[in-house]
């Protein structure tokens, strides 16, 4: 009785293990998993190694194929094949951008499907997808890798150049403003002098008008008080004008003549 119990328990345990194993096997039928690095940063002009490995229950055979595709950053839609590996041979894609720059770097026997991209350029920014088919294991998803091409030590130089450019621009700007201001000031002074001359002429014209109103003595004094050389010609002109006017008034109107005599 006691001996039988251990035997039955052992067989039960083995049955459970077998069941678990069978279930696991069934659930894993015809599924292939592909693994890649999520994101890669590469310096401009250098070589990028994009890793890709896969797990499959089926043995790798000559029918196993690897497809690497590229989708440029900012674009949507179907990606373009850049490399196809089948039966130990690699075929490059037709994308001119990657001509002769994509190399096979994997080992199918080790389930490694990596590639190398030479002379990485900025337009190579985008998503690279690795897709593996190991018939009859064909169900699964391709695995994407985001690649970013960056400049080597470019940022500091760029910022320094910007600073130098800014300073030089500011200095030139200040110089230009100063020159323009100086020119404006120089132009204003001559115009002011010209206005002064104009005012003197207006004064002389007013004097002549007052003369007509029989205030010649006051007019003469006003003319003499300003600078002599300016007023000289004016005085002579006024005398001549007054003479001519008196003669005309004598001929034309008699009462005017009497008024003048009385004042004298």
């Amino acid at each position: 009785m006691e001996i039988r119990l251990p035997i039955s328990s052992h067989s039960y345990v083995s049955l459970c293990v077998s069941a678990v194993f069978i279930i696991a096997g069934v659930s894993d039928v015809s599924a292939i998993d592909v693994f890649t690095t999520a994101e890669v940063f590469v310096e401009n002009g250098t070589t990028a190694t994009l890793s890709c490995s896969f797990r499959s229950k089926e043995v790798v055979s000559r029918l196993t194929t690897v497809t690497w595709s590229f989708l440029a950053e900012g674009e949507s839609g179907a990606s373009t094949t850049i490399l196809y590996h089948s039966d130990g041979k690699s075929f490059p894609g037709a994308l001119p951008q990657f001509k002769a720059r994509v190399e096979w770097a994997g080992d199918m026997n080790k389930k490694d499907a990596s590639i190398r991209v030479l002379q990485m350029q900025f337009k190579d920014n985008g998503t690279y997808s690795c897709d593996v088919k190991n018939p009859p294991d064909i169900t699964g998803q391709s695995s994407p890798t985001k690649v970013r091409v960056v400049m080597k030590e470019a940022l500091p130089q760029t910022s320094a150049a910007v600073i130098v450019g800014g300073v030089i621009g500011a200095v030139i700007g200040i110089i230009l403003i100063s020159v323009v201001t100086y020119l404006i000031i120089r132009r204003q002074k001559p115009s002011h002098d010209y206005e002064g001359c104009t005012s003197i002429e207006s004064v002389s014209t007013q004097n002549t008008r007052v003369g007509k109103k029989a205030e010649s003595s006051n007019d003469n004094s006003r003319c003499s008080s300003p600078s002599a050389p300016v007023q000289g010609p004016v005085i002579y002109a006024q005398l001549d004008h007054s003479g001519s006017k008196n003669s005309s008034s004598f001929h034309k109107m008699e009462p005017v003549v009497y008024a003048d005599i009385r004042k004298n």
């Binding site: 094949t81 196809y84 075929f91 894609g93 037709a94």
Partner: peptide
Amino acid sequence: KNPPDIGG
């Protein structure tokens, strides 16, 4: 894919 023509 039609090796060696696989582009497109």
